[in-house]
Write a protein that binds this DNA or RNA. Structure first.
Length: 636
DNA sequence: ATAGATTGCGCC
DNA sequence: AAAGGGCGCAATCTAT
């Protein structure tokens, strides 16, 4: 495979902050620019191109395999500079991602957690004579936009290093991995475009929620007798949140010393606290609520506080920084070791970049509709979500070849409902009677914490190895079900008895990973594992079990994004939610038809062509449409 | 003042 | 004996 290495340098325009050089959307706002671009040539020195030469050079790269380092940045900056049409014709790759395909492993966190170009050069090019010079050059960089000669030299080196690393990585990837890495690379352009296009937050709605939230918090503080004396009741505008309730240490003093409640939950022992500290967490408070209603008040206060500070005030901070409610959370492809995406809300980790709040934490956005309504489609467009239905359960059923699960998933509706199947086993009813009861709305089955809900909880919690004690805690804290240890144990026993293939999968996954030295997803993405003894033993085994499931989910999402981008230009990708993909689409009469067609296309994905894998159960997708995230409705 | 560690919590 | 996995962000607290 021939790669062309490419690197751009960027700078703020006159009078704008340095950090704009890291923000691709600033180019179209005319407050930052690409200062030069370097492109490798087969038989000679890399070429260096000044801004006015860039569009023409990009045109010559059409249909070539161009590789960059962390290419979302370069691609986004080039699109923002007005070169979308040229960019779309290029086959983009990312050297950093190809390296991850080769070396993704758990050891990384022990010696070098970073995937930057210097680390890549040390890993792949240490035999090259210019390496030390390259490292020194990287270590002494001036600010962007200054010392042009430095940046031009640097761009050339980066382009060469990138090309050489990519070619060496490619050589050691299997054909299947090359195919999957290419599918991932096809996501670079849509994800870069989404970064530029931005996510729209309804900050008016955010502001409108403040009075009710802060008044409720203030009332709780008064009832608990811990209000700030300077705050006047009924005047939320001068109220500040209780420091006692937002400080883990001060709250545990209040709970266990001032109020004298007994402490059951401790943090892990540390050097400073060999015994661990008394927890003031959601878990601890949930159990303290049995003894004192004040714990419930605190739980509610903490829920409101998180929503208020992180999502309401957070969105207002983003708007204040950007001067707009079109926000740009920074996407990262293959960012988790399982291949999932992450987003960052800052331009960097240190100094000025760390202060620049460019977007909101979409992956943590609270589920209540009132908050999800804040994420909205632009004027004249709708927000479409495709999500892989029951993705984890369907994947693990196949990885485990769990006969009962596969049978349920292959049954015609309404008998393809695994949560009901597990619920029927928990209730002791036959599946047929259970489904009939569900359709008739029998309380014990369909009520808020009825048998179907218990079945859903079991399916979502027992896929991986969890103890009865943690299961009980999870049921109570996350699902509002208060059961004793024995009940939790019986749920676990029923699940294991109903789906014996799951337990066999656990030992098989561990055995295989230990033998070959890595866990592997269905698309051939790997995670090297070698900490099989000592304190990491349990975690290593858990990763061996979890990686193929979560990793294949990540692969599936990338495949879906590539297909929809290729075949449905009406769908404008906006953001990822692990097993869900969100798009904007113009509101028009054809909308339902396009969305349904795209949904059917996803349901018909040929996984054999993509991954050499034949599913043994359907892998269906759901589609939802709405003006915002909180008001979307499913299409059938 | 600022960086890093700790604690806690939101999502899939 | 007991142990879900994967993340990013914010507030507090400690150290420099």
């Amino acid at each position: 495979m021939n790669f062309t290495g490419l690197d751009i340098e960027t700078a703020p325009r006159e009078g704008h902050p340095q950090v704009f050089a890291l923000q691709p959307w600033r180019a179209s706002e005319n407050s930052a620019l690409v200062t030069c671009m370097s492109v490798t040539e087969r038989e000679s020195q890399p070429g260096l191109f000044q801004p006015h030469e860039i569009p023409q050079k990009l045109r010559t790269l059409a249909f070539q395999n161009c590789v960059t380092w962390n290419g979302l940045f370069d691609v986004a900056f080039l699109i923002s500079s007005g070169y979308l049409e040229q960019v779309k014709r290029i086959n983009w790759f990312d050297g950093m991602l190809l390296w991850k395909w080769v070396d993704n492993c758990q050891e990384k966190e022990y010696f070098d957690p970073r995937w930057n170009l210097v680390a890549g050069v040390k890993r792949w090019l240490k035999d090259e004579p210019w390496v030390q010079h390259f490292i020194d050059l990287k270590a002494n960089e001036p600010p962007p936009g200054q010392k042009d000669k430095y940046w031009e030299l640097r761009a050339k080196f980066d382009a060469i290093a990138c090309q050489m690393i990519a070619e060496r990585c490619w050589k050691v990837l299997t054909p299947k991995q090359r195919n999957s890495a290419t599918i991932e690379a096809n996501c670079i352009v849509p994800v870069a475009r989404a970064w530029l296009k931005g996510v729209i937050t309804n900050t008016d709605l955010a502001e409108s929620m403040i009075p009710a939230m802060t008044e409720e918090m203030q009332e709780i503080e008064y009832r608990l007798g811990i209000h700030n004396d300077q705050a006047l009741h009924g005047q939320p505008e001068i109220w500040t949140a209780s420091k006692v309730l937002s400080s883990p240490q001060q709250l545990s003093t209040l709970l266990y010393d001032t109020w004298g409640l007994p402490c059951e939950f401790y943090t892990d022992p540390s050097d400073r606290f060999p015994e661990g500290q008394r927890q003031s967490s959601k878990t601890a408070l949930t159990y303290l609520a049995d003894l004192d209603d004040k714990a419930l008040e605190i739980l509610r206060w903490k829920e409101l506080n998180t929503q208020f500070t992180k999502f309401i005030q957070g969105a207002l901070k983003t708007k204040a920084y950007l001067g707009s409610n079109v926000t740009h959370p920074g996407p990262h492809i293959f960012s988790t070791y399982t291949g999932r995406m992450t987003y960052s809300t800052r331009s960097g980790r240190k100094g000025e970049a760390a202060k620049a709040k460019i977007g909101d934490p979409l992956h943590q956005w609270p589920r209540p509709k009132a908050l999800r309504r804040m994420i909205q489609a632009p004027e004249g467009k709708a927000l479409v979500e495709f999500d892989a239905a029951g993705q984890e359960a369907r994947l693990i059923s196949q990885l485990a070849q769990e006969a009962t699960m596969m049978k349920v998933f292959n049954s015609p509706p309404p008998y393809d409902d695994l949560h009901s199947y597990t619920g029927s086993k928990l209730s002791g009813m036959t599946f047929e009677a259970f489904i009939k009861g569900k359709e008739q709305g029998v309380k014990a089955i369909v009520s808020e914490r009825g048998y179907r809900y218990q079945g859903k909880f079991s399916n979502l919690s027992l896929n991986y190895r969890i103890g009865a004690k943690s299961l009980r805690r999870k049921a109570r804290v996350d699902y509002g079900m208060n059961v004793d240890f024995l009940k939790a144990q019986s749920w676990k026993d029923t699940y294991m008895r109903t789906y014996p293939g799951i337990k066999k999968y656990w030992s098989k996954a561990i055995e295989i990973a230990r033998t070959v030295g890595y866990a592997e997803s269905l698309a051939g993405r790997r995670f090297g594992l070698n900490q099989w003894h000592g304190e990491r033993k349990w975690g290593t085994e858990q990763s061996a079990i979890n990686f193929p499931v979560q990793g294949s989910g990540g692969d599936q999402k990338e495949l879906a994004l590539m297909i929809l981008t290729d075949e449905y230009p009406e769908l404008e990708f906006t953001f990822d939610l692990h097993d869900g993909l969100f798009f904007y689409i113009d509101i028009n009469p054809q909308l339902p038809e396009i969305v349904m067609d795209a949904r059917n296309r996803l349901n018909g994905i040929n996984y054999m062509d993509a991954w050499g894998w034949k599913p043994s159960v359907p892998m269906p997708w759901d589609a939802k449409v709405g003006l915002n995230w909180g008001q979307s409705r499913g299409l059938k």
